[in-house]
Write a protein that binds this DNA or RNA. Structure first.
Lengths: 205, 205
DNA sequence: TATATTTTTGACCAATTGGTTAAACTATAT
DNA sequence: ATATAGTTTAACCAATTGGTCAAAAATATA
């Protein structure tokens, strides 16, 4: 029954995703994943030969998802300012739905940098950047954004969006003491971050 | 020989620090730590009863170090703008010397949020904030920084400083393809980040 | 129904791991 | 020197873990 095959394999994959995200590669146990999927442990090895295979499958899918969320920024026919607003709104919204992703990805990337290198190799970043440059030539000049400052700006934007999720444990702890609600903070952040960045680049550094 | 005692215990602690930072709590092996310190594994348990004890000792010291780096911001007799410049310069410089710290701390915090909660409980954040508010009453008004926007601003600054180290694996991978040097980028970031934030808050969002 | 194929399982294994223990070693004090 | 207390080690243990295997159960095929 190929219908059931997929059900089992999919259930394994979903369970593995949940457990890996929560415990990490090192912390996750094959038995946990099997229990979570309601199947025998040996069945895991039947579909995915080893823990490493299973983890790689999960990791690559997750990383792909996250990268996809960045992609529309390069397509949308929006002004630069509108793109900045679009980015923070969509990206933070996505992370609200997958709040554990940043911490998981950052950890595994640091634990095994080679893994992400391969994924990056397959992306033509130069081309993406050229696209952006053409689309916004006038605006980039206006904001005084050059090839030298682009890495600073891009990493800053990623940082502002991702960091609250990656450091949620500390941030939420502090917020609790200040009576700040983390979810409200995230909602607010979608617009705050956009306006913050737009203000910052106006007139340029 | 109490002299040797301290040497051994210290050597254990240092080795444990290195191994834990590189491998994380789950990934670290007591045997690795023992080898690294050039001693027998049983000796680890002689000085630190369990792996958990040893890890907690390491973790609390590291977390304390990092928090200390934030402290001067609340003492220095500088203007708000100067403090922002001071923060990025000092903080990024500290992280350059301890580049693995952010990834390690973020990971362990997410793996065991309760651990960091205790540390946070011991800090009177309200008092720190009141201090800042008094010192910069006029400037805060001028920049339109309120109690509501402070969490946004603070997390943004932390994000800009910490994220490049936490996400180094990805960032460096991308930079390589663009011919950007990571160390140069970090040097540049000390001033770029400061001016970026100062620009952003001028006139206020 | 009988046969072949695939899926699922329980039992098992070798390796690893955190932790223990008893004995050896060292230093100090009497 | 001898006893005492603290330090270090080698050998060992129980539990865990990723992974294997043969057989059973389920499914498809003839």
């Amino acid at each position: 029954m190929t219908e059931n095959d997929k059900q089992t394999e999919e259930k394994i994959f979903e369970s593995a995703t949940e457990v890996f995200i929560e415990k990490g590669m090192d912390g996750a146990r094959m038995q946990d994943i099997a229990n979570h999927a309601g199947i025998n442990k040996a069945l895991l090895h039947y579909y995915y030969r080893t823990k490493d295979h299973l983890f790689n499958a999960v990791f690559e899918k997750i990383a792909g998802q996250l990268f996809k969320k960045f992609a529309p920024v390069f397509d949308e026919k929006l002004s630069l300012e509108e793109k900045i607003r679009f980015f923070f709104r969509e990206h933070i919204t996505f992370l609200q739905k997958n709040p554990r992703l940043p911490a998981f990805l950052l950890n595994e990337i640091n634990r095994n940098p080679a893994r992400i290198r391969k994924l990056i190799q397959s992306i033509d970043i130069e081309k993406l950047w050229n696209t952006l440059e053409k689309q916004h030539k006038a605006e980039l000049k206006k904001y005084n954004i050059t090839r030298e400052t682009i890495p600073q700006l891009m990493t800053t934007m990623a940082a502002i969006s991702v960091f609250p999720f990656a450091a949620r444990g500390i941030i939420e702890g502090i917020f609790d003491k200040l009576g700040v609600n983390f979810q409200d903070y995230l909602e607010e952040r979608k617009t705050y971050a956009a306006e913050f960045v737009i203000h910052a680049i106006k007139k340029g550094a």
